[in-house]
Every structure is written in C-alpha cells, then in structure tokens.
Design a protein around this nucleic acid. Sequence first.
DNA 1: TACTAATTTGTAATAATTACAATTTGACAT
DNA 2: ATGTCAAATTGTAATTATTACAAATTAGTA
Lengths: 141, 141
Amino acid sequence: MEKYVKMLREKNLKVTPQRLIILKYLNEHSTHPATDKIYQDLKINNPSLSKTTVYNSLEILEKHGIIQSITISGLEHRYDFRHEMHHHFLCKKCGRIIDIDVVCPNLGKMLECGHNVEEVHGYFKGICKKCMNKEKIKDGS
Amino acid sequence: MEKYVKMLREKNLKVTPQRLIILKYLNEHSTHPATDKIYQDLKINNPSLSKTTVYNSLEILEKHGIIQSITISGLEHRYDFRHEMHHHFLCKKCGRIIDIDVVCPNLGKMLECGHNVEEVHGYFKGICKKCMNKEKIKDGS
DNA sequence: TACTAATTTGTAATAATTACAATTTGACAT
DNA sequence: ATGTCAAATTGTAATTATTACAAATTAGTA
Ligand SMILES: [Mn+2]
Ligand SMILES: [Mn+2]
Ligand SMILES: [Zn+2]
Ligand SMILES: [Zn+2]
C-alpha cells in the first residue's frame, strides 16, 4: 500500500483512502475495468464509496499520468494501471481486452506532419485465440 | 448519386433516400462527424428524417463495410466514408480529427499471438499543427 | 397493381458521464 | 495536539449518447 502512497505523493496529490483502494484495485485487476465495475467491486468492502469519487479519482489519476484511459469499445472508458505505451485487443466474442506489447513505429511520420503527439493508442478488434479454439472444437475440429 | 445506389446494391441493401443522403453527406464531409451532427445537418433539408434512422443506417452501412466507425473520443461514435485502413489524430485543442495515412506494421505480431484480427485502429492525440502555430504566435514567436 | 418483409419514424428507456452544492477530510501551521 | 482551509468526497440531479420498441411507411418483387 505504501507503493500507492508514494505514487500519489510524487505527483503532489492528496493521499486519500479512496484513491489508494482504486489504485490497488487497478494494479490487481489487469482486465481494463470500466468505472462502474471498479465502483461495484470496491463498494462491497467500502460501502460509503461514491461513484462520483471513482469518476473523479480516475480522472485525476489519468491527468497525472499515473494510470491510462482506454476507449476501445466506444461505449465507455476503461482503465489501465500500466501507463506506458502499449496496444490493446478487444475480443468481439468474450469482450476481453488483452494487452498487446508492441510499440507504434509511426511516431516519426507524425513528427513530419508537425502535430504534437501526446498519446498513442493502438486498438485491434476481432476474435481472441481462446474463442477461436472454442469455435474449432464446436465445429468438430 | 448513382454511385451511392451502386454501393448499396452491391451489398444487397435496400436503396432508400435516407441511406443515400447519409452516404452523400459522409462522402462530402471528411470531418468524421458524430451521429447527431449528421442528423442535425441533414434535417435542415430533410425535416422528416428521424435520428433513429441515422443510427440504424450508420450501423448497417458499417456492418457491411461501406463506412467505418471511429471511437477516438470515447464518448461517441464518429463516422468515416473512407473504409480502408488508416489512422487518426485527435486535436485536444480544436477537436478536429485528422486522417493519418499510415498502415500498422504490427499485424504480423498479432498473427503470432493467434488472435483473429478484423479491425485495426490507430489513434494519436495531442495538439495539431495549426493549433501549435497559433500558440507560437500568441507567445510572441 | 398488390404483397410483404424491411425500413423509417417517434417516443420511451437505458447507460455513461458530468454538474453541483453540502459535508467531510488531508495537509500544513501553530 | 488543535485549528484552519483548500481540496476531496458524497449524493443527487442533469445531460448526453445510444438502444428498444411498436406503429406507419415503403422498396423490391411478382
Ligand atoms: Mn493495457
Ligand atoms: Mn478517416
Ligand atoms: Zn474472446
Ligand atoms: Zn487543433
């Protein structure tokens, strides 16, 4: 838990129990959960937690680069404790969002264009390996 | 207009005036408009148009690969007449979504992983060239 | 021209997010 | 340790994008 305290202090953010449990939750759940999922899960052991606080906390944590926000589904923001650049795969079948550890080699091109790039998001969508195998079995190999 | 008729016929989709004006609108506005923008603009000359029809039409056009859906902002779907793979840049200042004509070289890596990739989306976010120049001028060169 | 399934329309419901004001609290100074 | 206060939390209301649905209309076919 001291780890999360340090992360907040380094950014001069107030250390609150709410921010700590949210950070801990994100670190321990690499499923890229949405706001409501985080809220529902944490509420069980923290009944006084407000959903607005979850929204506020995620926003400020993201603004300070502690966590990352993913918008792969188009329906909701999903959050990621890993803040360094990586890509994601959304399975249209099971809904899982999987980390893809590649870097985007197109940043040079972006510099040419003259735009100032602050974020890079790479999203792939399709059917994940696990779901593909399930289909094969159902089809009778 | 015959061009759009042909696009629908090729996919065995019914040719309706609503679908035609939506396709025409998207082809003539490469701003990646959201559903409501398309609806508001078309309603002026088509007062009987329903927003639900815009939603339905965009959905079916996308499903058949005639148009592409972009979720770069996370809050809304934006639509693109260009359906071939390309990337996008969202300017956090002026809100413009700009086409970036690069291809993703990471598909090989995806094949290795065993996932079946159907869509690839590359999103960059930051400050666009135009807005960067405006800032420079304001700062006194 | 008549038929029918698909499409369009208007309205209502849902879901994610944001706004806001009252209460509480973490960080700092005494 | 206590007081102070700006910042954070909370609960509720408002907003926005999207989806659900049933009745009316219409495109494609015979
Ligand atoms: Mn991730
Ligand atoms: Mn585009
Ligand atoms: Zn899957
Ligand atoms: Zn700009």
